[in-house]
Design a protein around this nucleic acid. Sequence first.
DNA 1: GGAGGAAATGCGATGTTATAACATGGCCGC
DNA 2: GCGGCCATGTTATAACATCGCATTTCCTCC
Lengths: 150, 150
Amino acid sequence: MIPDSCDETAVLDRAEASCRQRGASLTAIRREVLALLHRAPKGIKAYDLLEQIRHTRGNASPPTVYRALDFLIEQGLAHRIGRMNLFVACRHGKHSAPSLFLVCPKCNGVTELEDAAVVSSLYASLAATGHRLDSPEVEISAICPQCAAA
Amino acid sequence: MIPDSCDETAVLDRAEASCRQRGASLTAIRREVLALLHRAPKGIKAYDLLEQIRHTRGNASPPTVYRALDFLIEQGLAHRIGRMNLFVACRHGKHSAPSLFLVCPKCNGVTELEDAAVVSSLYASLAATGHRLDSPEVEISAICPQCAAA
DNA sequence: GGAGGAAATGCGATGTTATAACATGGCCGC
DNA sequence: GCGGCCATGTTATAACATCGCATTTCCTCC
């Protein structure tokens, strides 16, 4: 589980560039939080994140983490998984369409996928009732292959 | 929004019967909570529910409500909406297939629908990644027609 | 009817997640 | 320098959910 630091740096640098493009800045704190998210193999809880970030910033408090998370989500660099209060880094460079998040309730694993067929039938169904998709994130509770095997 | 008490009683009685069938019992507290859920036009929060139930049971505490909710959800009589910490009564007599929950983030309105096309394409997508749908509840954040108009 | 046991409830405390409110610090253009 | 702006620090608290244990209720078997 030791990250390839070269890859990580590259990812963070790309994130920084994309923020800058939008007039936002990926500050040190935000970058650290994003790095922690990327290192986590699964969804991670805000307070676990807090604990981890205290290793480098002893004075971090809940708002420190939540503000960084809000920023990252706003910038499309991270996602919030509502049901389980989990946060994950976005593994996609860019979202052309809404994503489906398969959240495993056993292990907190999050799989992000874009499936045009599902999304288009979803749109049709929504349109039929006059609704409009609000968030590009659709969350689905599904047992992952590993947990299903166990 | 004043409920038709005759309908309400009928709904509750049916719920009670279906519990009994499964060897569970819809006690007074659970019945009251279910009634409150049915009266609510939208998703309702646990602590709002608590406040309401204190009108008739002054001594109710958080566990009172959460226990009743857990029971109702277990029995398929209610659903939890994860993102917003909302609870809603299930308006369907019986679920033959997973339901989609359209949750409006503006007004907390919850629309429950069963759409075979979406569900089947969803299943196909899940199968492709080796996942298995865990919960019969798929939650989607979507602006409702009323809020979209406003 | 009474003993035993399972399920439900009462009750207080606690754990967990998230935000409010206000102060401070640093940067930049003027 | 000073005024505005964004980010951060700091303290407190709001909002959501569960634990643990005592007590009651209700059922069932004798």
